[in-house]
């Protein structure tokens, strides 16, 4: 259900962008999804394939997901580490004084759309 809410937001935005730019249809959407964003890629894809059927421009759109690794920075020792492996506690020095650098993003990176181009005069 959580993925569905985000997917609805994505397909609505993409539909609007297609209309605003005069595109015929959208054939691809690339998204960056952080490992610790709470979005489950498999569910996201299922939700996307359901939601695209309800849009005007995305009927044939394929979704590509680039998974961004979660990395956490330790304020104590200055090292970084993989968040999914060690969580909040730094594996280098054991300090809990850490913060997430990257990996919580859900970003629409780009959209591939088909446009009509005027016939070339020969």
């Amino acid at each position: 259900m959580h993925e569905l809410g985000i997917v609805m937001n994505v397909v609505e935005q993409a539909d609007r962008i297609a209309a605003d730019n005069g595109a015929q249809k959208i054939v691809g959407i690339t998204m960056e999804i952080g490992e610790v964003s709470t979005v489950v890629p498999e569910l996201f894809l299922d939700a996307f394939n359901w939601a695209k059927k309800r849009t005007e421009y995305l009927q044939e759109a394929e979704l590509e997901m680039i998974i961004i690794e979660g990395r956490t920075y330790c304020k104590e020792c200055g090292e970084t580490y993989r968040t999914t492996e060690f969580g909040k506690k730094c594996p280098h020095c054991g300090s809990p004084e850490t913060y997430l650098l990257t990996g919580d993003q859900v970003i629409i990176k780009d959209i591939s759309a088909v446009f009509d181009t005027p016939e070339q005069e020969t």
Partner: peptide
């Protein structure tokens, strides 16, 4: 003639709501 163009966005899905 048809052509495929890529529109770059790099936009968070939460941006509009935020």
């Amino acid at each position: 003639m048809q052509q495929v163009k890529t529109i770059l966005l790099s936009k968070s899905v939460f941006e509009d709501n935020d």
